[in-house]
Design a protein around this nucleic acid. Structure first.
Lengths: 230, 230
DNA sequence: ACCTGAACACCGTTCAAGT
DNA sequence: ACCTGAACACCGTTCAAGT
């Protein structure tokens, strides 16, 4: 039903932008080649002219997100001299995190890539630079990158949604029988309810936890830096 | 071709054990309902009698791995009093890690679960217990669990295989043009090659990096504990 | 109670063909 | 150069049917 006019030619960029739209609207499982084509208003096989296969498409999506991160933090360039490396690091990581929050499916896509994307390498190189210019040896900065892991890109991939944990704990009458098996969790929950009766829902605040963990990491790495023989 | 004798009846346990075998041998993408059935020597639809669907099957696999972790570390029970919580924590986490190393696909399965498995809750409760008996407040121990994240289960989910990074760096003649764009990585690599010319392959030792990161985390958390008002 | 066969609704992808 | 239609080899799953 597309009139000739709204039928601007497809392009790799248009395909990738549409892919992000589809994932934003319907989650990652909605992002199929067929569904993506339908969203654009084109036949599924047309996509293969602009993108060699689904894996390549996802690689392109990762690149697009990295560009968005670049815009968010005003470029990756590393200043010549850095006196507060932790602040600079935090600024970049929290910027990346805001992009991930806009695209909740982002972390899963990032973790699904097996080949290392050039755009991620650029980002990582800059983080490495921040540490080196901030007083790290290359060796320690290297360890630090591994320590940060995916948190360098602003996400932590929780092992389970706190929400479903909520439900589990809330709905069951098995709550009492659960107490026998997980006494520490039960005590923890009751303490939290006691301290703040309102926050039964979302008592694990993602933002708080991410920041806490990030600070533990950055402080820990700074201690290692200070202990280095220079 | 199965004779009546080797046709012991299927059971949930047999299905899950076979699933682990299939994944061990062929990776996670080999673990399809149809492939699993074939491995057992049964029709695909027979599986649905013992397991309600693929998701439930994967949940069962997670439970099986958690049991294996329990055996590896001699049970989850928390001793009454703990004077070195870091050592106890490290012991459990490195035990979990050994299981993950035996089943390389394990981390991916764990991260794919959205509903929280009871067997994981038991494990987490015990880790929480180690910290509480080791001198943490419940509040801080809670933050600590989030900080550890998936590392509590012995894996860190690297953003890319160092191996493929190797290849990338090694094969290309673009190595020189790469130097312009990722100067810090290039310098880092050259330093490492200079210090230890042998270790071009596998210069990121997973074991070393995991231990380094774990110690940064445990030390950082211990500092928070010592700073707590008791 | 336990297993099967045929069928359905989905995938990603190839390949020859259209304009 | 760009897009399409039909077809293939896979998925997970339902449902009625066999023993």
């Amino acid at each position: 039903m597309a009139t000739p006019t709204d039928r601007k030619p497809l392009s790799r960029e248009r395909v990738l932008a549409a892919a992000i739209e589809v994932a934003d609207e319907g989650g990652l499982e909605a992002l199929t080649m067929r569904g993506l084509a339908e969203h654009i208003g084109v036949e599924a096989m047309s996509l293969y002219y602009h993108v060699s296969n689904k894996e390549a498409m996802l690689d392109g999506v990762v690149d697009a997100l990295m560009i968005e991160i670049g815009e968010e933090i005003g470029g990756f360039d590393v200043p010549d001299q850095i006196d507060d490396w932790k602040a600079e690091m935090r600024r970049r990581i929290l910027g990346a995190r805001r992009v991930m929050m806009r695209h909740k499916w982002g972390p899963t896509v990032f973790e699904s890539r097996t080949t290392m994307s050039p755009s991620i390498i650029l980002y990582m190189d800059a983080l490495l630079g921040v540490m080196v210019e901030g007083g790290f040896s290359y060796d320690l900065a290297h360890h630090a990158m591994h320590t940060l892991g995916s948190r360098a890109l602003g996400f932590s991939q929780e092992l389970f949604e706190p929400d479903s944990a909520q439900q589990e704990a809330a709905n069951d009458q098995s709550l009492s029988e659960m107490a026998e098996h997980v006494p520490y969790i039960m005590t923890m929950l009751s303490e939290i309810v006691h301290d703040d009766p309102d926050s039964t829902l979302g008592w694990c605040d993602d933002e708080t936890e991410f920041n806490f963990a990030l600070d533990v990491l950055l402080d820990g790495l700074d201690n290692r830096r200070l202990a280095e023989p220079s």
